[in-house]
């Protein structure tokens, strides 16, 4: 399988729209960041991909073909949602061997080695784990799954800095060995920005950005200085948002940087993923006078 495509996917729960006409393609061998605020539709999207939820309309395609029940589509994918789906009294070791039963490509040995790398006790039951440890359990399952498309939903939830560090290195180590597609869904952005190659930003059920990280970062810039100078400079330009601090302002602008003749009074900067994300997904009308 070379790619998975979502075509015109919409999903409603009762009267509320969770996803609205989503078109996306996940290609093989890439690291994606699926970003959105809480409730943006990230988890719904992942669940539709994995067949846990049916879309209200739209299609999921594998290599441009409609997915059929007898395809080995799900064998290529791995997604773990809330670990509540697992029997909570069972030990991690047993859960690994049961996963192997359903998924012959599952690498039990690797799962156990990651378990000890992260300092988990494989004889413990899922119930006895803390939030962070449950997150790790999910991550270990995914990384050991042998799937070519892995979807990680909030893979760093509750993890301390040390373990996040080990996790990023583990993901990259595995990815370097044999590239697979990994879609990291999170609202904690800054840390993953050096890892991801392609960024998808979801906002209120819609895709607002879907492009390589490099081009996303190059799509705009920041300009800061005294309020009057900033206001004069940005008039007629496409402004994403403005941060104000007393008489000082920083504006975020879409388009190519035009510094000429303004270097004296204004300072120009590059956008970070975090800044772009906040500007693209902030509540509208926040232009405070």
């Amino acid at each position: 399988m070379k790619k998975i495509t979502l075509s015109g996917i919409s999903k409603s729960f009762g009267g509320s729209r969770a996803l609205e006409n989503v078109d996306l393609t996940f290609e093989s061998g890439k690291i994606y960041g699926l970003l959105g605020r809480n409730g943006a539709g990230k988890t719904t999207l992942l669940k539709i991909l994995y067949g846990i939820l049916y879309p209200s309309s739209g299609r999921v395609l594998s290599d441009d073909k409609e997915i059929r029940i007898n395809d080995n589509f799900l064998g290529n994918l791995f997604y773990v949602g809330e670990p509540d789906y697992f029997p909570v009294e069972t030990s991690l070791r047993k859960l690994f061997s049961e996963t192997k039963y359903f998924r012959p490509e599952f690498d039990t040995e690797y799962a156990l080695s990651l378990t000890s790398l992260f300092g988990l006790d494989s004889s413990k039951s899922l119930r006895s784990l803390s939030t962070g440890q449950r997150t790790l359990f999910k991550d270990i399952l995914a990384l050991s799954s042998g799937a070519s498309f892995i979807f990680l939903d909030e893979p760093i939830l509750g993890l301390d800095a040390n373990r996040r560090d080990i996790l990023y290195r583990t993901i990259l180590g595995k990815y370097n060995e044999s590239p697979f597609t990994i879609v990291i869904s999170t609202h904690l952005i800054e840390e993953i920005s050096s890892i991801v190659e392609h960024v998808i930003i979801l906002h209120e059920g819609r895709v607002v950005r879907d492009e390589p990280l490099d081009s996303l970062l190059a799509s705009g810039y920041s300009v800061s200085g005294k309020k009057d100078a900033v206001r004069k400079y940005i008039s007629g330009k496409s402004v994403m948002g403005i941060d104000a601090l007393g008489g000082f302002e920083c504006a975020y602008i879409l388009g190519a940087r035009q510094e000429n003749g303004h270097q004296d009074e204004l300072e120009f900067g590059r956008l970070s993923l975090q800044k772009i994300f906040v500007q693209m997904t902030g509540s509208k009308g926040g232009d405070d006078k």
Partner: peptide
């Protein structure tokens, strides 16, 4: 190597 740099400094190997 790119692999070593990628893992050590936590960056995408393409970068």
């Amino acid at each position: 190597s790119t692999t070593e740099i990628s893992v050590r400094f936590k960056m995408n190997p393409a970068t």
